[in-house]
């Protein structure tokens, strides 16, 4: 389990201090694939780098258990470890990066051996294990290739193999798929999910792409300007984002409705299962009310249907009220007015 308690990070800059993270507390359970999302500059990279102390938090605790033997068997605060203890703890926390960060002067096999060299694993055993990891990431024929000879996706696979080589408990992914094309992204995500399920490694995934989160994450936290604004299961956050920042991320394509002459705008949220029912058509037939679809976004999350729709109600108050009561009566659908839509 990883527990971040009241993490703050301040970067001193030429024009004053910059608060990158402000009092963030969150818990990542063992075996989770935990997504941390936010716009660029929200502080998500800083947050993940605080987990292995590449960035030392200005305040707060980074608690993890199972890394070092403690007297009481409880979790340790990484911030309180000596440099040597921290290095030992870091062997159980692997990290992969957007830019892969492979050693360019070493072959793939030697790259995978690298963390084991650091940990003092005998050469022959390291090589044997490295070959196994090459197999796991699906590149058994690239042992003697240099990173420069590989594609981006292949480099990330080697980086993942290298991350696994130290037998970690946690895998931190800092924008690991952001430099890759959509097809490669999917295959890398599949690999991370596979590793999570087969080896039971907890994964923390930093991304600005919601598609990544919905593809593999079990829980998610949303960051905005250094604050954690929402956290929960992916289902909760996706079906009903409670904050403006959450909605912006979950429904990035908010329709531009200035063009539509409508009185009231409501957001209809589908909470699993009902996305595929012809709600709007039934509304038109059953009530005879014509609503305007201003924007819609439906997704398939972990086998269940989720989504939301922005509807412009008719200007006639009576018809609008009729439509509202019809929508409210539906199962698995929540309706809320969007008062600030015209603002």
């Amino acid at each position: 389990m990883i527990e971040l308690r009241h993490i703050s990070k301040v970067f001193p800059t030429a024009d004053g201090d910059f608060q990158a993270l402000d009092d963030i507390s969150l818990t990542i359970r063992d075996g989770d694939i935990f997504g941390i999302v936010g716009m660029s500059g929200a502080g998500k990279s800083t947050l993940v780098r605080c987990i292995n102390l590449l960035e030392r938090p200005t305040e707060g605790q980074v608690l993890m258990d199972g890394l070092l033997e403690t007297e009481d068997g409880g979790p340790v605060d990484l911030c309180k470890l000596s440099p040597a203890q921290l290095r030992r703890a870091r062997r159980s926390i692997s990290m992969i990066f957007q830019q892969f960060n492979l050693l360019m002067q070493r072959t793939c096999l030697k790259n995978i051996c690298f963390p084991m060299e650091i940990a003092g694993v005998p050469k022959a055993e390291a090589k044997k294990r490295a070959l196994e990891y090459l197999d796991i990431v699906g590149l058994p024929d690239k042992a003697n290739a240099y990173p420069a000879q590989l594609s981006g996706g292949q480099k990330q696979r080697i980086a993942i193999a290298r991350a696994l080589a130290s037998n970690p408990k946690v895998l931190l992914c800092d924008e690991a798929t952001s430099a890759l094309d959509p097809t490669t992204t999917r295959s890398i995500l599949k690999l991370i999910q596979d590793i999570n399920q087969r080896l039971g490694i907890t994964a923390v995934i930093i991304t600005h792409e919601m598609a990544v989160v919905e593809a593999i994450c079990t829980r998610v936290a949303i960051l905005e300007r250094g604050h954690m604004v929402e956290t929960g299961t992916v289902e909760e956050v996706f079906s009903n984002p409670k904050t403006e920042a959450g909605r912006r991320l979950v429904f990035p394509e908010g329709a531009n409705i200035d063009k539509f002459p409508v009185a009231d705008v409501v957001r209809v949220v589908f909470n699993g299962g009902s996305s595929y029912e012809p709600l709007i058509a039934s509304l038109a037939i059953d009530c005879g009310v014509k609503v305007n679809i201003l924007g819609a976004d439906t997704r398939n999350v972990n086998g269940k249907a989720f989504g939301s729709m922005l509807l412009g109600l008719p200007e006639d108050k009576g018809e609008a009220a009729k439509a509202m009561s019809y929508l409210r009566a539906q199962k698995d659908v929540t309706v809320e007015e969007v008062p600030d839509y015209h603002a």
Binding site: A84, L86, R90, F97, L102, L103, Q105, I118, S166
Partner: peptide, 27 residues
């Protein structure tokens, strides 16, 4: 030498001496 590579080595728990010998100089 790419800073990211040094960071990767640090994240793996390499000591400063190991980073010099196994990362900085070879790279």
């Amino acid at each position: 030498v790419d800073r990211g590579v040094l960071e990767a080595a640090q994240a793996m728990g390499a000591s400063p001496f190991q980073i010099v010998r196994k990362v900085l100089l070879p790279e």
